[in-house]
Design a protein around this nucleic acid. Sequence first.
DNA 1: TTGAAAGCGCTAACAT
DNA 2: ATGTTAGCGCTTTCAA
Lengths: 341, 341
Amino acid sequence: MAKVPRASTGRLDRHPTLEDVAAGAGVSRALVSIVMRAVPGASEATRHRVLAVAEELGYHPDARARLLAGRRTRLLGVTLALNNPFHADVAEGVYAAAEPLGYQVVLSAVTHARTPAQAIETLLSYRCEAVLLVGPLVTRKALGALGERLPVVVVGQPTPYPGVDVVRAADAVGMRLAVDHLVELGHRRIVHADGGRAPGSAVRRKSYRAAMAVHGLIDDIRVLAGGEREEDGAASARTLVGEGLPDAVITYNDRSAVGLLDVFARSGIAVPGAVSVVGYDDSQVARLPYLRLTTVSQDIPTLAELAVGRAVARVENEPVAERELVLAPHLVIRGTTAAGA
Amino acid sequence: MAKVPRASTGRLDRHPTLEDVAAGAGVSRALVSIVMRAVPGASEATRHRVLAVAEELGYHPDARARLLAGRRTRLLGVTLALNNPFHADVAEGVYAAAEPLGYQVVLSAVTHARTPAQAIETLLSYRCEAVLLVGPLVTRKALGALGERLPVVVVGQPTPYPGVDVVRAADAVGMRLAVDHLVELGHRRIVHADGGRAPGSAVRRKSYRAAMAVHGLIDDIRVLAGGEREEDGAASARTLVGEGLPDAVITYNDRSAVGLLDVFARSGIAVPGAVSVVGYDDSQVARLPYLRLTTVSQDIPTLAELAVGRAVARVENEPVAERELVLAPHLVIRGTTAAGA
DNA sequence: TTGAAAGCGCTAACAT
DNA sequence: ATGTTAGCGCTTTCAA
């Protein structure tokens, strides 16, 4: 034992194990385990010696064995679509929130060639203790079955299935903030370029209508059929340019706003001079210095933190008051909104 | 055995194991293992019965145990920065290329709170057989040490360390294509908004100069100090608007081009009427219908496929001719370039 | 503080 | 075609 043969390439044939370190330091495996996990139970002297040997041997703990042997895995699974900025931001937030709680995160991507079901299956195979689902990945039925097996937190949107937790921002409030802001600036003809069939689009559309009604602007309600991509916003802009500009536009999300702004710019339409624009999400793009998009922020880091908190609470069997955790979004006023002429 | 106690919540207390399935089907664990891995060695009848029991019990294989017990893990690790479109595209490509070869991929994100070293450490702890590094994540020294431990493929840029493989596109060729195209259109005053300290920026800058020289345009060489973000391109645009427009601009990447185009649009400058613009990467944004950015494509899916191929070749000890695999980029001509006045 | 021993759930030789 | 038997590298009681 503790003999580490080398391949002809000069690369190690196998990774050193606890056993190797134990032998090198003249102690038992159990003691090395204690030292490596930095838990109490070893003298300072031993600790130092073991650490030195480990370092010298190039020992790196084996996650497979660690996970398998431990009573718990303390693993949090996250499914996400790469290339989706919102998902990416949530994942970053999850990493940040999980570590202080002693949980590790496992990422599983949903791609063109990898279904949500596969992504989830991978997470389960690693024995994650809970999964966070970002975006509208799975069918209701699949969600139900999943929720029966382990704690599930859906991040960013409501779901009708009662067996899973939800952490999201209140779209009704967000739309209300946007409309309030624009009305305060003196705008009345406020149109909404909606998200089409995108997740949450229906809620935001409805919320827009309600907010307009509150201000007695029922006759000014106008919804343009759109989508979640830049091009959808661009299309809406073209429509508006063709038929005459409203006072302001609220888009389904920031991406849509970007396309809309671009077409406005190319058409020589000043924003916010001729028309005000409000986006949704406060994603990175909204903060770009040359865009300075006024937008409704979902406060993604907090969203992620609460989602992790909820997952951990479920895993650790802490009492949970509400299945759904709804954050109040806030309006970030930047440079695309101003008082009308 | 094969007794699956339930928690008061109704959730399974533990996952069913091979043992449980074996007991249920009245066969040995080894046989169930054979069935679950879909390898030959079991009769059709047994196969069906085992599968049925597994299904009924809700059995899902344990990746930890599988990975630990197997002779190999067939795991490919990928470090990436979420929120970087190039990284995301590469990761998608890696998933697509790895599966047909029988390899699974493990993602490890580099975030604000998670260093490249940590991301790599995680990958190693799972005993990935090779790692793909996207972007300029690590120091030369760390790279060297890593390359000694297992096959490493750096994706998307050159690296001076000889112990690792590199799969990237030829920046010199890309720049040359861009300049050739613009010269053919009759442009001479072609400036380059560079990437500042971004990875690969120096190479592209140098390549731009060389390409200009080839066309006898040494006196027209002009490099604007920039960066990799949209705002950097926007800044370059402001400079150009202030001092008078050149015939064309080649940016370090598509993101920079986006910022540049935006400022041009707001300044009432027609593209490609008054000035042509060429981006770099052919990321998703370049294809946006309202942008239609002419750009140099690195062909990311192929890049990813070759990177996976190289990693697998190393893992399986196949002979490898060149340490560096350099793809020929190609120019994607869209709507931001046209003949000058 | 330290060590011995029993698994964790699986794969892989080797028998039968 | 099927079963038996060792591990894989670690954590975790339980003793000492």
